[in-house]
Design a protein around this nucleic acid. Sequence first.
DNA 1: TTCAAAATGTTTAAGCTTGAAATAAATAAA
DNA 2: TTTATTTATTTCAAGCTTAAACATTTTGAA
Lengths: 155, 155
Amino acid sequence: MEQRKSDAPAEPLSKERLRLWLKLLKASSLIEDELRRRLRADFDWTLPRFDVMSALARTPDGLRMSEISKQLRVSNGNVTVIVDKLVKEGLALRVAVPDDRRAQLVQLTPQGQTIFAEHAGVHEAWVDEMLGGLNADDIDGMILRLDHLTKSLEG
Amino acid sequence: MEQRKSDAPAEPLSKERLRLWLKLLKASSLIEDELRRRLRADFDWTLPRFDVMSALARTPDGLRMSEISKQLRVSNGNVTVIVDKLVKEGLALRVAVPDDRRAQLVQLTPQGQTIFAEHAGVHEAWVDEMLGGLNADDIDGMILRLDHLTKSLEG
DNA sequence: TTCAAAATGTTTAAGCTTGAAATAAATAAA
DNA sequence: TTTATTTATTTCAAGCTTAAACATTTTGAA
């Protein structure tokens, strides 16, 4: 870790933050674009679709529409369209909520679970390949700092 | 397959990489969404528009359409639409390239430069505020590792 | 009870983005 | 020269996303 002059003024830190943001955005976009491209080329899936199925796969009991849109930070209307398609293809189904006739739970069908498991495995291998240039120290260091950042952003 | 320390099997590192990617994506999306929201609310600007003007501001001599789309990793057609609007609003102009009648340089007008400078200052303050939770060590550590990552992604 | 406010989802209109096709100009090959 | 290929850009159709408007149900206060 390099040392800083104790009298380092405030302005450079602000410039460094901007630099950091541009680098963060670039790395994230590079990965996201490539994942999106492969998902489309290999499976004819969109990234939001993968994300919705991923959220559903983590919660076998099902999620409400609003819970999905909140988790993925995507509009409600968007989730409606994606889930409609999943249902039409037999990968998900809507289940009534006993206590609340407005709401409904969305669950993966067994077929949806099977297909997602396959795709998720390939997806994980892609990420592993793309981030392969990082060693264990890089990974831990970034996770640590990203946790700081996200915490301060959400707090 | 290469040998590994008995206490460090291959799987955990792969899982860590996936965890890192999810955290990277989350932090990046949080910041990007908020910037987009503020840009729209305060200036009625889109983020791609800001990005195009930013690229042009860095190169006073002007950029070709294809150079813009390459820098921003955005489709050519998209750049056409954005530049059309900038030109219509008097913030940018198209200049013929002497040697090549297919191409044209896009430059910011003086008005475009002035307006962008104002917005860029506000934008930088937003970023500074959002990343304010990070100390100098966090920033340096992340920049270092993001450079590793981007280099390995592009290489 | 009764009615206003809040919550859950869906629909719709508008804007954004992409990829493919089209146009036009420059370059290379025969 | 003539033809084919490559390069630069625009146009267009299709899909994605959002925000706002809408319909329905639940909650809570008078």
